[in-house]
Amino acid sequence: MVETCSVCETRKPVVGVYALTSCYGCQLMIATVEKILQISEAVTFKSFHMLTSASSHGKVDIAFVEGSVSTEKDLIELKQIREDATVLVAIGACSIHGGVQSWDQGLRDYPEMYEKVYGNGEIAYEGLAAKPIDHYVKVDHYLPGCPPDEREIVYFLSTFLFGTYPERKERPVCHECRLAGNPCILIEKGEMCLGSVTTSGCNALCIGFGIPCIGCRGPTPYDTASFDALAKEFKRLGKTREEVLDRLSIFGSHDRRMRQMVEKAYGGEK
């Protein structure tokens, strides 16, 4: 079993919040939760750039890492964080699934793209194709969302402070969507909604406003997302293979089953 904070019974846990390649939205979300004052009294922030300029690397009990590994520098920093942390939590779409910067994962030649953007110009560090952090280091817990939901951030911290650990959400968005009292927009309007293959935790916020889910919380874990069945339904609704792949790739391009299952649904046809 994963180690929880070893010292939370005797002293304040030391927490680090770090960002690799990302929009810093996850940090902003943590910094602005309603209970941030209570949190900052319950833990000591060793590093949290959005809250304190006195941030530095060093030993922490719990590390929250947002962002994907998109540069050599990210990778060095991530490995350092892993070495310094007892528990490492991947937080947000970039960190867990590679984020929107992974949209084209596996579809284009990276060196070619790199050259197109940077030409011969010199930059301080080498770029890498954006990858989720568990591609490089062991991740203990996953806190999905773009950005994560306030209740889940507080839940994660609370479990660590209590001396236990957070349970991973597996239910799809549909579960929360029905409970939220929304009618299904895939059935009723034929919208290309990804709720059925996307991890819940958002209370189906977008669909509540009539906007189909684009999967920002990532595919449901443990290979439970049935991309093939969903793609078949989209196909029946007249969506093209490209449209479906494009939509599923926004936040799911690193799912190893996704492309294959969509191809299966479309049976190789264009």
């Binding site: 209970k35 319950a42 609370s158 479990t159 799809p172 029905r178 449901t220 069945a229 339904e233």
Partner: peptide
């Protein structure tokens, strides 16, 4: 094979009664 495992069938069923439980601690660690 057609099933997406979305759970709509059970959520909307008038006789489904399965539940799960979870402990949600407070931030005070107590």
């Amino acid at each position: 094979e057609k099933c997406i495992s979305c759970g709509n069938c059970t959520l909307t069923c008038p006789t489904c009664r399965c539940y799960d439980v979870q402990d949600v601690p407070e931030l005070d660690g107590n």
